[in-house]
Design a protein around this nucleic acid. Structure first.
Length: 420
DNA sequence: TCTGGGGTCCTAGGACCC
DNA sequence: TCTGGGGTCCTAGGACCC
């Protein structure tokens, strides 16, 4: 049995933890740069605010209905997410932190009366609410894909009170018959359009399709989904996330720019961040991918990228940044207003198993030591405390965050205050 | 006035080499 | 002189997730 616990409108609920006055009110949270709407509270959805809509397009609607707007505050969401995990861990045999707002959980059997899995779901829901003040939906079933489906029902059907468990064949069929394929986990808009053309409209249709045929016409992943919908578990619970095969850091600029110096400064920051993630995994990169693009909404958008082999596998920020700078020089064409760049580390190898080349220097122990000091400084005093000069000593543009809430949980100066 | 997220993995197709 | 299978690397873009 696998349960999926998922925070309702997670980012909006996080904001409401320290602003309980906003519970039951329309709240939206914006993406980086205050670009798009990424989370809407139930009340905001009811006002007809669409998901992933550019913020400026609904500014009028927001004003008219007094919608409460927040820039994203990842320090806050990350901290509440880990508190949610800690709570769930006490009630579970295994926990997989699947995303910032979702956990897969294998239940501890002594916590519920035999055969009463709904009771277990209730325990989880109440515990997270009591300890973290985040409302969650709970779905349980024999596979991950079915628990996703149950979780969806838990949120959609008010009578279920936030908990839905698929225990019988009848329940499985009932739910599958009512879910359009596009709402299934692992089926996006493209694949669902093709499935619809083939007459496969609901989860039930897909569950009854031939897995072999699906594999032939689509791919292995969708074949797995078919099996999972039939209760055959193909996707394991992973307590430790598998190591990444690629690590990317990409950002939109806070405003468009044609200046190569500014673009290099931004890109140096992204390369540094990618290096941090790589070292956290304890790996080394052999290949780097750098891209630079104008807005895809421009009349003649351009997007150019370069892939380069690094001289030897490395996770040294100085080397990564140096090569990223060279790439930008090659990619940058004068006269265009660029909106975004990114750095990807691909072809990642585990240091311990890497076969060194006796003719190339390789990463030195000095470099390891320096990176480790830099990482500890930044862990202790905040990201960006120690940085490469190429990132720019004065920030050209800071991220647009006009509606950010305080870092209630991660900065002493911003702790909530109570006046009595 | 202008404004449109971020991350991971996979694959098709072209260029080049043996 | 002309032909041609098979592999690797790179780029671009598709597809999914949150």
């Amino acid at each position: 049995m696998i349960f999926l616990i998922d925070g309702n409108s997670f980012y909006a609920s996080c904001e409401q933890v320290f602003r309980p006055d906003l519970r039951g009110k329309p709240v939206i949270v914006l993406s980086n740069q205050d670009g798009c709407i990424v989370t809407r509270s139930k009340e905001a959805k009811a006002l007809g605010i669409p998901d992933l809509e550019p913020f400026f397009k609904i500014a009028g609607l927001v004003k008219k209905h007094g919608v409460h707007v927040f820039s994203s505050n990842y320090a806050l969401y990350g901290e509440l997410s880990s508190r949610m995990n800690l709570t769930l861990r006490r009630y579970a045999a295994e926990v997989e932190a699947y995303s910032i707002d979702e956990c897969f959980v294998r239940p501890l059997e002594h916590l519920y009366a035999k055969g009463n899995l709904v009771q277990y779901g209730e325990i989880l829901r109440k515990a997270v609410w009591k300890e973290v003040r985040i409302p969650v939906g709970v779905g349980g079933a024999s596979t991950k894909s079915l628990s996703k489906l149950a979780n969806r029902a838990a949120k959609k059907i008010p009578q279920l009170n936030g908990v839905c468990v698929i225990e019988t064949e009848t329940q499985r069929e009932w739910l599958l018959r009512r879910v359009p394929v596009k709402d299934l986990w692992g089926v996006g808009s493209r694949i669902s359009a093709r499935l619809n053309q083939m007459g496969i409209l609901t989860g039930w249709d897909l569950a009854n399709a031939s897995p072999k045929n699906i594999r032939k016409q689509f791919n292995v992943c969708l074949e797995r989904t078919v099996n999972e919908l039939n209760g055959i578990s193909c996707i394991d619970l992973e307590e430790l996330p598998p190591n990444k095969k690629q690590i990317y850091c990409t950002r939109s600029f806070s405003s468009k720019t044609s200046s190569i110096e500014v673009i290099q400064q931004f890109t140096a920051q992204y390369a540094s961040r990618a290096g941090e993630k790589l070292r956290k995994q304890g790996y080394y990169a052999r290949t780097m991918h750098v891209f630079l693009q104008t807005s895809p909404f421009d009349d003649n958008p351009i997007s150019r990228s370069a892939t380069i082999q690094l001289p030897y596998p490395t996770n040294d920020t100085r080397i990564l940044v140096g090569h990223a700078m060279e790439c930008i020089k090659k990619l940058h064409l004068p006269g265009h207003a660029y909106s975004k760049s990114g750095v990807g580390l691909i072809d990642i190898v585990d240091g311990a198993f890497h076969q060194a080349d006796m003719f190339t220097p390789g990463q030195s122990s000095q470099s390891e030591a320096l990176m480790s000091v830099m990482d500890s400084i930044n862990t202790r005093f905040g990201r960006g405390t120690a940085f490469i000069a190429a990132s720019g000593t004065e920030k050209q543009f800071t991220m647009k965050q006009n509606y950010k809430s305080p870092n209630y949980l991660t900065r002493w100066a911003e702790l909530p205050r109570v006046t009595c």
